[in-house]
Design a protein around this nucleic acid. Structure first.
Length: 408
RNA sequence: GGAGGGGUACCAAAGUGGCCAAAUGGGGCGGACUGUAAAUCCGUUGCGUAAUGCUUCGCAGGUUCGAAUCCUGCCCCCUCCA
């Protein structure tokens, strides 16, 4: 039996863990594990796997990382599994069909920058970073067969993306089946009590339970967090789709990207990323819905919060300043890239290509015809123009691409 | 091993002898509107100082006045049967 204080502690922890999660499977087991943990004073072993497929952490990752941080703050033991081995296989995805396999060097390189960025969120003192290559690489073929023998193809095909590909006659490579098994084996190796992941990880997380049971271990609880959509407002945030906001971005970039998040996602971003009290967020939502508050202002507050958290107060101040002068007042950006050029007159089309403002002569010509090209703010209309640069001239394509010329 | 289906532009996907530089959608790039947003609308999206020009439809040949489209060989992918 637990004392009243202990019961209260379990309730407190459960409430914190629950906030913002999409699903906890099975929740009763989590309660049991928490009670046991509180009763015996033994921290839970909490695992999160990360594939070093790209070199940057983005806001999508931070959702689940924050949950991990909360476990840390509750005194539990946290394992961050870098998929040094699994990363070389690549988690099967519906989109990429067969994801490219990373080399060991790429994995090592990515992992390095990863860990530094991870500590923007996690407490380094309380984080155990482990590499699954350490225990997966030494497995021999017989052991691999043993893992594979615990699961049937039919069960594997229950996984949504496998099923879909199978039905659509698209290729599924045998090694892709091993990905869930390897991830599950990580849980066995670490004797995980809890594994975190996005909702898209459900199959893999449950595979961990399956394999733990096969190995005679208590089964882990799967704690799943909602996926964060990226800047396109549709797909989940990912580097490969280019719709992400990295935690290491230039302040102005991070701020600008946050300001371009679709309004429809504004409060989802608040719920998943903001540390502000829930009541405050709710009040803001009501104000926006009632038209008392411009969604832009709500978005700006969020952008400020996140830039400050990841990049610091100074970065926040600068980014806000930059955004105000450049975009709210419509001025030129203060960080226009400069190019050194000679003062020889050349065909305007050639200039655009040379300056990287157009991909080809045809593209440059089109841009001029569309009225997208300006020199010092004056629209260029003649595709045959011979242009002679003056020091400090600003050549512009569209609203966002600028180059300042420095004549030598 | 056998049978069938398929490889088209950044992606998806039409096109099966000339009207095809190739429909349509997505994405990209511009323009309008705005809050550098979303939604919406419009234009554009192989190269080429542009020409009844050049290169492109898996690769290499061939038939034809003319090929993404027909023929031959090769490569790759998928499904089913064994």
């Amino acid at each position: 039996m637990l004392t009243a204080d202990q019961e209260a502690e379990v309730a407190r922890q459960l409430a914190i863990i629950r906030r913002g999660t999409a699903e906890i499977v099975p929740e009763e087991e989590l309660v049991q594990k928490l009670r046991e943990s509180v009763r015996t004073g033994t921290p839970l072993r909490v695992k999160l796997g990360i594939d070093p497929t790209s070199s940057d952490i983005h806001l999508g990752h931070t959702v689940v990382l924050h949950k991990l941080r909360q476990f840390q703050d509750l005194g539990h033991q946290v394992f961050l599994v870098i998929g040094s081995f699994t990363g070389q296989i690549g988690d099967p995805t519906d989109k990429a069909e067969t994801r490219k396999q990373l080399s060991a060097e790429e994995v090592a390189e990515n992992a390095k920058t990863y860990v530094a960025q991870l500590y923007k969120i996690l407490d380094p003192e309380k984080t155990q970073v482990v590499y699954n290559g350490d225990w997966l690489a030494p497995l021999d073929f017989a052991q691999v067969i043993r893992l594979a023998s615990t699961i049937t193809v039919a069960r594997m095909l229950e996984r949504e993306d496998f099923q879909k590909r199978f039905q659509e006659n698209r290729p599924i490579h045998v090694h892709e089946f091993f990905y869930p098994l390897m991830q599950a084996y990580d849980s066995v190796h670490l004797r995980a009590d809890v594994e975190l992941g996005g909702t898209d990880q459900k199959f893999n997380l449950l595979m961990g339970r399956h394999l733990q049971r096969e190995f005679g271990q208590p089964m882990q609880v799967a704690v799943m967090l909602p996926l964060l959509e990226g800047l396109d407002g549709v797909n989940k945030m990912s580097k490969s789709l280019g719709n992400y906001i990295g935690v290491d971005e230039e302040p102005n970039n991070m701020f600008g990207k946050l300001m371009s998040v679709p309004d429809s996602l504004l409060f989802k971003y608040y719920e998943l990323l903001s540390l502000r009290p829930e009541q405050e967020i709710e009040a803001m939502r009501r104000d926006v819905e009632a038209g008392r508050m411009n969604p832009r202002d709500a978005k700006m507050q969020l952008a400020e919060e996140l830039v400050e958290r990841f990049l610091g107060p100074e970065a926040r101040r600068e980014a806000v300043e930059h955004w105000r002068t450049v975009f709210q007042k419509g001025g030129l950006p203060d960080d226009i890239p400069e190019r050194r050029v000679d003062h020889e007159a050349r065909w305007i089309v050639k200039w655009l290509v040379d300056l990287g403002l157009a991909q080809s002569n045809s593209d440059a010509r089109r841009a001029i015809q569309e009225g997208a090209v300006r020199v010092n703010g004056d629209k260029v209309t003649d595709t045959d123009l011979q242009y002679q640069p003056q020091d400090g001239d600003v050549i512009q394509r569209g609203k966002r691409q600028f180059v300042r010329l420095r004549v030598q």
